[in-house]
Design a protein around this nucleic acid. Sequence first.
RNA 1: GGGCCGGUAGCUCAGGUGGUAGAGCAUGUGCCUUUUAAGCACAGGGUCGCGGGUUCGAAUCCCGCCCGGCUCACCA
Length: 501
Amino acid sequence: MSLEDELLKQRLTRIHEIEALGHRPYGRRFEFSHTIPDILAAYSSKTAEELSPEMRVRIAGRLMTLRHMGKAGFAHLQQSGERLQIYVKKDIVGEPAFQLFKLLDIGDIIGVEGYLFRTRTGELSVHVETVEFLSKTLLSMPEKWHGLEDVEIRYRQRYLDLIANPEVRKVFVTRARIIASLRRQLEARGFIEVETPMMQPLYGGATARPFVTHHNTLDMDLYLRIAPELYLKRLIVGGLERVYEINRNFRNEGLSTHHNPEFTMLEFYQAYTDYRGLMDFSAELLEQAARDATGSAEVEYEGYKLDFSRIERYTMREAIIRFWEGEGCPTMDQVSSPEWLLSHSGKSNPGEALADIFERRVEEKLIQPAMIYDYPVETSPLSKNKPEDPAFVDRFEIYAAGMEIGNAYTELNDPQEQRRRFEMQLAMRERGDEEAHQMDEDYVRALSYGMPPTGGEGIGIDRLTMILTGSRSIRDVILFPLLRPEGPIGLAKQLRELDKL
RNA sequence: GGGCCGGUAGCUCAGGUGGUAGAGCAUGUGCCUUUUAAGCACAGGGUCGCGGGUUCGAAUCCCGCCCGGCUCACCA
């Protein structure tokens, strides 16, 4: 018999032994007096003399360490990522409870009642008087001091990762704080949260390849959305003048440390402002999110100190000049010259060439949080032209740690111009650009009813979370990142066979 | 998709140039009533990712495949 079968069998046997002692192997409700974090917060500073048997506690948690010493023993219970030691002595708990204690495996969930004291070595502990069994583990916990390091198992069995690696738990707590902070700030400014379709008959609002699915009764193909943008702006037309959505987008493209096929975006739209207004708002939003998540506007990422209280601003052309490395740094006249741009990029028009040069030469160097503004019209089918230069649009992107984390613009609200932009995209599509926008005629119709001047923005929650938690891979901030399917697990068969015994 | 690295006990990892598969933790048994990487003694546990090939002999060399990580390309 393999070790795995043997361990499973041992533990299934223990279930019967636990039952024989009058306990449920899978318990029910347990009324606790404190959580383990509560106790650590309240009593960590108390000396041995300040603790007394009157300080009774009733706690539950998962057993993470176990040290038997004949007629006594120590263990650590873990709850919410924090641990508290318990001390179980036969004289105190009595024979039956001590028998139960001897049957415990690391990973079991139990409840205990007793009083707080400090051991000879000074560790705050619970002097246990009663033990209640709450849930049996059948499988072994990860190794006790290396934790769980196999990256694949960490992602596939995130529950184990969360048990074994407290810092992983912290990342997801911080992620929740970031989202809560953004919601709070938006709500405080009168934005309302909405939900728009994830399954869309036409996809748009970004350039990306979509996932396709099918509705049987309607017998129609639907796309998983690549962005909620066009729906959110329909709501602006409808008079919901400040809306936001925090939800998933789906893009059928490569996977990498910075890309997961489903990812979370905040998109918000505010009537009667423009991209300048959004730049100011974004600066506040990000600084506050950083403070709420980490306690400071300065965060460390990959050895760099990023300061979200001083977000830099450059036009795209300024950024190319400022961050150019090596020979041939262009002048402002050059980056404004179609000939120079086309000679430095394989793209077919000056606008796309400018964006291409920026992406290749500048993007990864934008370590300090920065907003890059004034984008070429060719790369921005939904943004409003700059009145003084129609080749450019009122748009900015937010960068930090070399990653794009946000994108915003003054929304195009002229239906004729929007129609022309869609037609321009259709032409690109016919030339083979699969990612070019489709014509969304209902969206043009919505604009034709009149959309107030509006600023709109999207912020990538996963990437922002990476930066604010110091995570180098997007998979470290997504609880269940997409992986190839696992091979057969075989546990059901093992359990079925052991069930007969 | 390309390049590089990896897959050995439940977990974390060793295993120059081919020669009977190892350690620590975990597990089982015994001892141990303030230990904490508890300790001591003994024991069990492996399709060395999968499939071919070379060889008297392969965890080790060769080929193919699967899975994962990093990286480049595409993208947010």
